[in-house]
């Protein structure tokens, strides 16, 4: 299992670097934007909250950077990400805890769906090269050149609004209380449909193109010719010889594309005022709420790392060569 160990080590390293970037950024850049925020909120902040922001943003100039780094880690490990200014005086951690499930549900499900759907379409487009399926290329090229959020705007203009079928903003009908009751769930699904389709359309094109190209490459491999020579059915050759192998780079590429896809989907949330991390990030940017921005960056990075780890596990199952003598 040296493969998994290596990957785990790599993710720990990445997490450490992301956290350290977060630590260093406010300390490297001149000016103390957070100081002015603290000054403005004077009187409403408890000493403990001020102390926490001092640790996060390095306002304690007397301490050496190493001591600051130690305090920083200690505070993070306690789950203290400071106070949000956009949602004053809610702690960043609880703002994130409220919005994370929305993003996980929306982005998680649509990303998975877009990967599966895009890969399947790519398999067909690559296998039936020269047929009408080649038309997917110009369409997907166009879709992948459009920013996700703009497609979202168009979707709202076309399908939502006063006489539209879908709600144009929010995560559920105002007035409902989030919970596991049918009214709320139905409303949540209805609200997430349009953003989900937007994300699906924009992110699918990448998977289609890469899978199609891999299929074209793999179709020329000897073992595919052997499969044809064996007189296997077209389906069998396509699925378990060509696609099965073409899938491998796609799965290992999943990890790398995930960061991009997540970035794009955060923006879709903004357009739809969807109560997830992207929308919070947007509000944090507008309010210059640095603690919230940094907290969201950390959480997104850690979630992407976790998703990557899952993709690695999938790869391990799919490619026998990585399972070699552990």
């Amino acid at each position: 299992m040296s493969y998994l160990l290596r990957r785990t080590g790599f993710y720990l390293l990445t997490a450490w670097i992301a956290i350290t970037i977060n630590f260093l950024l406010p300390r490297l850049i001149p000016g103390d934007p957070v100081m002015s925020l603290i000054n403005r909120a004077q009187g409403q902040l408890s000493t403990q909250a001020i102390q926490s922001l001092y640790v996060l943003f390095g306002l304690n100039k007397d301490e050496s950077i190493f001591v600051q780094y130690g305090h920083y880690w200690a505070q993070l490990l306690h789950g203290d990400l400071g106070l949000s200014f956009a949602f004053f005086p809610t702690p960043v951690a609880s703002v994130i805890a409220d919005s994370l499930p929305w993003t996980l549900a929306l982005v998680g499900i649509t990303t998975l769906a877009s990967f599966l759907l895009g890969t399947a379409l790519g398999v067909y487009a690559g296998w039936r090269r020269g047929s009408w399926l080649d038309l997917v290329i110009p369409v997907t090229t166009f879709l992948s050149s459009v920013p996700y959020f703009w497609l979202g705007l168009i979707a709202i203009a076309l399908f939502a609004g006063v006489n539209g079928i879908f709600p144009s903003s929010g995560g559920y009908e105002p007035g409902l209380v989030p919970g596991w009751d049918p009214d709320f769930l139905l409303s949540a699904v209805q609200h997430s449909l349009l953003p989900a389709v937007t994300i699906l359309l924009s992110s699918m094109s990448g998977w289609i193109l890469s899978m199609r190209n891999m299929m074209v490459t793999v179709a020329a491999e000897d073992y595919v010719t052997v499969a044809h020579a064996k007189g296997l059915s077209e389906r069998r050759v396509m699925v378990s010889y060509a696609a099965r192998n073409a899938l491998l780079p796609s799965v290992s590429g999943f990890a790398l594309s995930l960061g991009l896809v997540v970035g794009g989907t955060l923006l879709v949330e903004i357009v739809f005022s969807y109560p997830g991390l992207g929308f919070e990030l947007f509000q944090a940017v507008g309010a210059k709420d640095y603690p919230l921005m940094q907290g969201i960056f950390l959480i997104i990075t850690l979630s992407v790392l976790a998703a990557n780890f899952v993709a690695d596990l999938a790869y391990l199952v799919l490619d026998p060569r990585t399972r070699r003598e552990g």
Binding site: Y223, A227, A229, S240, P320
Partner: peptide
């Protein structure tokens, strides 16, 4: 018909010993 004919009447041993087998099965 060709699919049924292949391998049953004429089989082939290919050039590349390395790449003729599907690596994932």
């Amino acid at each position: 018909q060709l699919r049924a004919f292949r391998w049953a009447q004429t089989s082939i041993v290919f050039q590349g010993a390395m790449n003729s087998l599907n690596p994932v099965h």
